[in-house]
């Protein structure tokens, strides 16, 4: 057999997962750093909501623009429905994130209200969501890279 191995590029859904992971980490690193400084300087609710909204809008716009660029580069593959491996990997990512989110929500909903308030609780809830999403996308890209035997 003299068939040379076919070059296997990165799957469309893996590229989207990398994009989402990178955007999430960058956007919320900036947000939490700026929010911590703003709270220390006594910023009001309006400023913090504005900061969160600005980060959210920039993140969403960047992800949409980059997703369109990736879809154009991926051609037909971007229009193909997810196959069984894509779906299995997505389920694995969601299952891993679920436990992280559960722990975060228990902390935010059942523990923090007794000792913290206001933006500390809001940011803790947001942090739990971000960590859960990061775990989800990290699980997805790891599963695509290292293989997965469901």
């Amino acid at each position: 057999m003299n068939q040379s191995p076919e070059k296997v590029g990165i799957a469309f859904r893996e590229r989207i997962a990398w994009l989402s992971l990178t955007a999430m980490v960058l956007a919320y690193s900036v947000y939490f750093a700026l929010a911590a400084r703003a709270i220390q300087q006594g910023a009001g609710t309006g400023e913090l909501i504005g900061l969160l909204a600005a980060v959210l809008v920039v993140q969403i716009l960047v992800v949409i623009a980059a997703s369109i660029a990736i879809a154009i580069c991926s051609g037909r593959e971007a229009r193909a429905p997810a196959d069984e491996r894509d779906r299995a990997i997505a389920r694995r990512g969601a299952a891993a994130a679920y436990f992280v989110l559960m722990i975060g929500m228990i902390m935010v909903g059942c523990v923090m209200p007794f000792r913290d308030k206001g933006w500390t609780v809001i940011n803790a809830a947001l942090f739990a969501l971000v960590v859960a999403e990061v775990v989800r996308y990290a699980t997805i890209v790891t599963s695509y890279r290292r293989g997965w035997h469901g």
Partner: peptide, 23 residues
Amino acid sequence: LGERIGLTRQTIAAIEAGKYSPT
């Protein structure tokens, strides 16, 4: 092969490489 059975090229490559066990 992928087109004929509804899998992506990357999934066929992963199966061949032993990185994914198909249903």
